[in-house]
Deep mutational scan, measured.
Amino acid sequence: MDSLVVLVLCLSCLLLLSLWRQSSGRGKLPPGPTPLPVIGNILQIGIKDISKSLTNLSKVYGPVFTLYFGLKPIVVLHGYEAVKEALIDLGEEFSGRGIFPLAERANRGFGIVFSNGKKWKEIRRFSLMTLRNFGMGKRSIEDRVQEEARCLVEELRKTKASPCDPTFILGCAPCNVICSIIFHKRFDYKDQQFLNLMEKLNENIKILSSPWIQICNNFSPIIDYFPGTHNKLLKNVAFMKSYILEKVKEHQESMDMNNPQDFIDCFLMKMEKEKHNQPSEFTIESLENTAVDLFGAGTETTSTTLRYALLLLLKHPEVTAKVQEEIERVIGRNRSPCMQDRSHMPYTDAVVHEVQRYIDLLPTSLPHAVTCDIKFRNYLIPKGTTILISLTSVLHDNKEFPNPEMFDPHHFLDEGGNFKKSKYFMPFSAGKRICVGEALAGMELFLFLTSILQNFNLKSLVDPKNLDTTPVVNGFASVPPFYQLCFIPV
């Protein structure tokens, strides 16, 4: 009986604490739906499609509103004006990374994606500088992407125009580009180590996009005490870190300090320079996690976009025909596509942009946080508050993009057929937390897609009208449904 009384008292205290925290903070924060004790607004949000729920709530509470995930307040920004004001106009104040408990377990605050403060700034600055020195957006990395595009075309030829699921092959190409940047090595598509790495990356994007992960991140005790797919994700990350550590040891034994070959060499050189400046942010643990982040951000996002792009091109054969006509006119058949071609191919450029806009790969991006107490639109948001960005509300804005739910390359073309930029184009987020590999991803999408369409016609196994382009999961990332196609050599 005594234990029951204690339990009831504990629960009562928890409920009172929950109510007090919510009521004391709500006077400062933007308005929002009334949260339930302990669980907050979790029942009012469709976990399978958070973005749709945010759109519905914005119609009631406006472009800036507050939700509670458990006891934790989260300020939501919906629509271009609110997102721009926060991420661009007040970029420094909104540059923090929001709480992501599962990532905390995986990387302990290291790396480039989930770190904060001085650690994040130094690692991000170093990573950007190193990638630029190796030619991100310049010639040397373009050579690597072109080489991988040629290998991709050869792998597709091996399908002999038979029906195939493109998931694996389209994942190999961007993964190999990242391998060449980090390890100075590309792998054969049949290499077992490479296959294991690909498998872990593919599993992780599916797990991260599941409703279960949303629950884990908002009720963090689940991570330590409950079984579930989150444990598989943590094991996959541990596998990748151990693999990278092996490569780091190989580099330490063979590195030429006067001739760095890749990202690992550059990081080890930085560690050597910083060894007298303790404590340094440049450690082996930081290198492991930064490399894992580059793999995660640079492989599955690009391969998922490529997979979605081919599905949309199957669905819209008239678009595919126009792209192939432009390829034939500008590039021809006797040389590989290059980035200089893009400025002469406005329709193809528009298609690449429209694919990214339409699929809305990361509907709410990753959570941000404010780095200080900030007054925002007459609300006071306390330091450390998590900020949720609705990228969907920007990419699918119906004023900027008429009929935003329709796939239409003319969203990025003017009346004369010239490519038209849009400030609403934010597939990689915006501001200080914009994806480090934005330029690389854009290069890969253009070169891989043009190389495929230069060499193959795409054949659907069903009537294009019957192809479903609805994402199968739409949590962290929008993942396309399973499909097969035939690559018919031109």
Rank of each mutant, 00 (worst) to 15 (best):
V5M: 14
V6I: 13
V8F: 14
L9M: 13
L9G: 13
C13E: 10
C13F: 13
L15G: 13
L17R: 11
S18K: 08
L19H: 13
R21V: 13
Q22A: 13
S23V: 13
G25S: 06
R26E: 15
R26K: 13
G27F: 13
G27H: 13
K28A: 12
P31V: 06
G32H: 02
P33L: 03
P33E: 02
T34R: 14
L43S: 08
Q44I: 06
I45S: 06
I45T: 10
I50T: 10
K52R: 12
S53Q: 13
N56G: 12
S58F: 04
G62V: 01
F65T: 03
F65M: 08
L67V: 15
F69H: 08
F69R: 06
K72G: 05
V75I: 15
H78A: 12
H78Q: 11
G79M: 02
G79V: 01
Y80G: 08
E81H: 08
A86H: 05
L87E: 06
L87H: 05
L87P: 03
E93Q: 08
F94Y: 10
S95N: 10
G96S: 11
G96C: 10
I99W: 15
F100R: 06
P101H: 11
A103L: 15
R108Q: 15
F110S: 10
G111Q: 02
I112Y: 07
K119A: 13
K119V: 06
K119Q: 15
W120G: 08
W120F: 07
K121F: 06
I123P: 15
I123M: 15
R124C: 03
R124T: 05
R125T: 07
R125Y: 05
R125I: 04
F126L: 13
F126E: 06
S127Q: 06
L131Q: 06
L131K: 03
L131D: 03
R132L: 05
F134D: 07
F134I: 15
G135D: 09
R139F: 11
R139Y: 08
S140P: 06
I141P: 03
E142P: 01
E148I: 02
R150I: 08
R150F: 07
C151P: 00
L152Q: 01
L152K: 01
L152F: 02
V153I: 11
K158I: 04
K160T: 02
A161G: 15
A161V: 03
S162L: 14
S162D: 09
P163I: 05
D165A: 00
D165P: 01
P166H: 00
F168V: 06
F168A: 06
L170H: 00
A173T: 01
A173C: 02
V177I: 08
I178M: 15
I182M: 15
F183R: 01
F183S: 03
H184D: 15
K185D: 06
Y189S: 01
K190I: 04
Q192A: 13
F194R: 01
L201H: 05
N204I: 14
K206C: 05
I207A: 07
S209R: 15
W212R: 08
N218R: 15
F219H: 06
S220Q: 13
S220C: 15
P221R: 13
I222Y: 15
I223N: 08
Y225A: 11
Y225H: 10
F226V: 12
K232M: 06
K232G: 04
L233V: 15
L233D: 03
N236K: 00
V237A: 09
M240H: 02
K241N: 04
L245P: 01
V248L: 05
E253S: 12
E253V: 13
M255C: 13
D256L: 06
D256A: 08
D256E: 09
N259R: 10
P260G: 08
K270D: 06
K270C: 09
E272I: 08
E272H: 10
K273W: 06
E274A: 09
E274S: 09
N277V: 11
N277M: 13
Q278G: 14
I284F: 09
E285S: 07
S286C: 15
E288D: 05
E288M: 13
A291F: 15
L294R: 00
G296C: 04
G296T: 11
G298M: 00
T299N: 02
T299L: 04
E300N: 08
E300F: 15
T301M: 01
T302Q: 05
T302W: 00
S303K: 15
T305L: 05
T305A: 07
L306V: 04
R307I: 02
R307T: 03
L311N: 02
L314C: 06
K315Y: 01
E318F: 06
V319D: 07
Q324I: 04
E326F: 02
I327L: 07
R329S: 12
V330W: 11
I331A: 05
N334P: 05
R335P: 03
S343M: 12
H344F: 11
Y347C: 02
A350T: 01
V351T: 15
Y358P: 00
L362H: 02
T364A: 08
L366G: 02
T371P: 10
C372D: 13
I374T: 14
F376P: 00
F376D: 02
R377I: 02
R377A: 07
N378D: 14
Y379C: 05
P382A: 07
T386R: 08
T386H: 08
I387G: 02
I389G: 05
L391F: 08
L391Q: 10
S393L: 00
L395C: 09
D397N: 12
N398L: 08
K399G: 12
E400P: 06
P402K: 13
P402N: 13
M406R: 14
P409Q: 01
H411K: 05
F412M: 04
D414K: 05
N418M: 10
N418Q: 11
P427S: 08
F428S: 04
A430I: 12
G431V: 01
G431L: 00
I434Q: 15
V436D: 06
G437T: 02
L445T: 11
L445G: 05
L445N: 12
F446C: 00
F448E: 02
L449R: 00
L449N: 00
I452Q: 00
Q454T: 02
N455P: 00
F456L: 01
K459C: 08
V462Y: 04
D463T: 06
D463K: 06
D463M: 04
K465T: 10
N466F: 13
D468M: 12
D468E: 10
P471R: 06
N474I: 05
A477G: 08
A477P: 05
S478V: 12
S478C: 14
V479Y: 11
P480H: 02
Q484E: 14
Q484T: 08
L485A: 07
C486Y: 06
F487I: 00
F487T: 00
I488E: 15
I488H: 08
P489M: 00
P489V: 00
